[in-house]
Amino acid sequence: MIQTTEIIETLSFFDCWEDRYRYMIELGKELPAMDNDLKTQDKLVPGCQSRVWIDWKNINGLLHFEVDSDALIVKGLLALVMAAYQDKSANDIIEFDIQNYFEQLDLIKHLSPTRGNGLQAMIGKIQGAARQMLD
């Protein structure tokens, strides 16, 4: 699983938008696809223009996510988010400074949560899962 530091470093290395987006698309393509049977209505994240599915389970006290999207760049965004959250404890997920992470990823214009890319909703769903596990 790719680390957040590696993503930040790689993105800062590119000096044109095309390379950054190609990288995002690559990240999206590399993200393991979700089993089609798992893509049920209740896994859909509301508030996204493309369809985004997030499922999670508790594996030995760590949250393991299965995620997917029908849009490639959004899948790349999911890969960025997964680098931060995959197989972490609920406490780690809640404590992770996602804002700071995105500020460091600022090279990608669409990371702004106001852009309607559903990023805010995805993070909300993941943090919600972590809170649910702590309850």
């Binding site: 095309e18 987006y21 223009q49 029908d70 849009a71 760049i73 959004v74 214009k109 669409h110």
Partner: peptide, 12 residues
């Protein structure tokens, strides 16, 4: 191609 992907790349 997903429309949202096209939209993002065109915005760029």
């Amino acid at each position: 191609c997903h429309g949202q992907d096209l939209g993002m790349l065109l915005d760029q």
